[in-house]
Design a protein around this nucleic acid. Sequence first.
DNA 1: TCTGGGGTCCTTTCACCC
DNA 2: TCTGGGGTGAAAGGACCC
Length: 414
Amino acid sequence: MARKQITGIGPAPRTGADDSACPILHVDMDAFFASVELIEHPELRGKPMIVGSPAGRGVVLSATYEARAFGVHSAMPMSRARRLCPQAAIIPPSHGKYSEVSKGVMEIFHAVTPLVEPIASDEAFLDVGGARRRLGSPAEIAAMIRSQVLERYGITCSVGVAGSKFVAKLASKQCKPNGMLVVPADEVVAFLHPLPVSALWGVGERTEQSLVRLGIRTVGDLARVPVNTLQRELGAAAGGHLAALAWGRDERPVSAHVPDKSIGNEETFATDVDDPETIRRELLRLSEKVAARMRKAGYVGRTVSVKLRRADFTTITRSRTLREATDIAQEIYATACELFAAAGLERVRLRLVGVRMENLRPAEEASRQLSLGQRETGWREAEQAMDRAIRRFGPDAVVPASLVRGRLDEMDEK
DNA sequence: TCTGGGGTCCTTTCACCC
DNA sequence: TCTGGGGTGAAAGGACCC
């Protein structure tokens, strides 16, 4: 999904350009979640439609281009979207469906090249340099991918073709929806410089404000500013990074295997909560979820991080690094409770809590260490048994007692 | 206008060690 | 014994991405 709203007019799309030095493709599905919903709701084609939770505190996950014409865009509060476009149909999200289509689309990519780097469920980078002899030029491969996705799922995508990831990504954005744009190597600077700075990866609202204060509005303006000035204003890393991007320099390769750095879950309550018992029950539920995901992905983690968002939207995080890495919910939960208590927010109204594990590494390494004679609590076996039961009988098969209490309360309320 | 949920990365601050 | 500085890792916050 294109999240950033980029204003400004780029060069006209070109498709017949020289793609000989452009092995990188960025494929981006158009209004992905909304497009997937249209498969099941063909009667909504050509009409404004929004994917997002119809009740409560939610934001727009995706919207058809007919709804976007009213100013609706993803990440916008649903309440505002409904005001802007009251006639839009609202479809609650079904993430299972999207990941299924996403998997199929990624299969199409993998049939082209093993060098596929997914960056979200609806977009990926492909390095097609090695597929030329077999499948044709990068532009021909891009056209083939677009027609295969359309044929198989009836949804359109846009493809940027360039010599680097960053330019390919900007190109796909420029040719949306349902387009393709090749940016030849010798036209990169001419392509980039008229774009607004906000088009660059890493320039959000805050950075844009800082740049505008310096009189920098376009990528061309940025390119003419000395690197050390940018580094002084934005920090060493961001300043250096943007200076390179402004001249189209981006050496990052497409890498198919990027290991996860953290795994977490968070939840916004329907209404703010100031009861510590409810918060702790939520921490347990989130710890269970995170631990199960870690075991499924084969990770253990050393750092437990808790996120607490107050009713006024200010957010604090607290974290602790454990002596041993773990994938056991009970250990994560115990630490999360200590962090929550230490934060001193036990009587404060909270709208969100989250649990995240960081410092991840493969679980085999940890089990090797454990076999050298360290503690084993028995919780791992219990939770692995839970995993098996859940795989066999479904997600409600096994639930910790305190969560059952919570569910009974919920049932009483209904 | 009132802000989800999944993440990554960077900066600053602080404690600790040498 | 006291002090300072560099290196390092942890913690916290925040910007940013989709």
